[in-house]
């Protein structure tokens, strides 16, 4: 079937020049590895370390837009702060939509931002460190084999997310909490599996479920279309309850209820924000969502 010439229509960006082998040996997985970081001083040594571990690594780029589309199994290590093009959660969502499994990394992202990239579809998060690339190599291997990489920090943040944004329905199961707690305390995946009495697939299902919950927590705090209407009228035009009610054809009491929900969602999605009047929350949303 396959002749001596490589089949046409493939991405030209192949690191070794040849057709990608169906399976790579050693710890490396079959796919390509991309590195997006605005600092060559960071990205090139990382790429070298990954190559050394047997991965096939693309030339590092400084913007997500510079990467070709990913193919199943391809992993990209993506920095959080990218001055060129998309950055943060937006960059992760873009890469995920282009077929990459994203391993997010940063030395400066706060907890909220880390959870934000997970909600945007990242498969894991690695805290940038300057002394070793060991964690990156391990994490890329994990994500390459279609498993989530949960660092101790990420595990702690996922637990923290459940604490600050509890879901009314099904939240983290006791098993998931135990697993995350153990990971946060520094237990290895092997140890967590033993403690939970589950196999790799079971643990992966638990972690994937925990990731899905971070997405749900954020979706829960998204404004409904009606709330957006109220935000636009109250936040942008500064109308009172009665005028807003007249404008939207609803009762003033309903507007007040919407405003309460708007405030609740603002506070829930902006940890650290304390007391805020509903009208102030509407204005903040309006500015944040650029509705005015």
């Amino acid at each position: 079937m396959s002749g001596p010439t490589p089949p046409a229509g493939r991405e030209p960006a192949s690191p070794t020049g040849g057709e990608p082998a169906p399976s790579a040996g050693g710890a490396a997985h079959g796919g390509l590895v991309g590195v997006v970081d605005d600092h060559p001083i960071v990205s090139y040594p990382l790429a070298d370390a990954l190559r050394l571990a047997g991965h096939r690594v693309l030339e590092p780029v400084t913007a997500v837009e510079a990467l070709p589309a990913g193919r199943p199994g391809d992993v990209v290590v993506c920095d959080y702060s990218l001055p060129e093009g998309r950055a943060g959660g937006e960059a992760v969502a873009y890469l995920a939509a282009r077929g990459w499994r994203v391993l997010a990394t940063s030395g400066v992202a706060g907890g909220e931002q880390v959870l934000g990239v997970i909600a945007a579809g990242a498969w894991g998060y690695v805290e940038k460190r300057f002394t070793t690339h060991r964690e990156y190599v391990h994490a890329v291997g994990v994500v390459g084999s279609a498993r989530r990489y949960v660092s101790p920090l990420l595990a702690a943040l996922l637990l923290e997310d459940a604490r600050t944004r509890p879901l009314t329905g099904a939240d983290l199961s006791p098993g998931q909490r135990t697993a995350l707690r153990a990971l946060a305390e520094g237990d290895s995946e092997q140890e967590v599996r033993v403690a939970l009495g589950t196999d790799a697939a079971g643990l992966e299902a638990a972690l994937a479920g925990a990731f899905a919950l971070t997405v749900r927590r954020r979706r829960m705090n998204r404004l409904s279309p009606r709330e957006l209407d109220v935000v636009a009228v109250v936040g942008c035009r500064g109308l009172g309850l009665k005028e807003t009610a007249r404008e939207l054809g609803i009762r003033p009491g309903t507007v007040a209820d919407h405003l309460e929900a708007i405030k609740r969602k603002y506070l829930a999605s902006h940890p650290g924000e304390k007391d805020l009047s509903p009208r102030a929350a509407a204005l903040r949303w309006a500015m944040e969502l650029r509705l005015c």
């Binding site: 001083i41 960071v42 702060s81 001055p83 400066v108 300057f130 002394t131």
Partner: peptide, 17 residues
């Protein structure tokens, strides 16, 4: 933060390592 993150940290970390 950007100044520290972009200009200072990478150098300091590289030096540290």
């Amino acid at each position: 933060h950007r100044a520290i993150h972009d200009d200072l940290l990478p150098i300091v970390e590289r030096v540290a390592g």
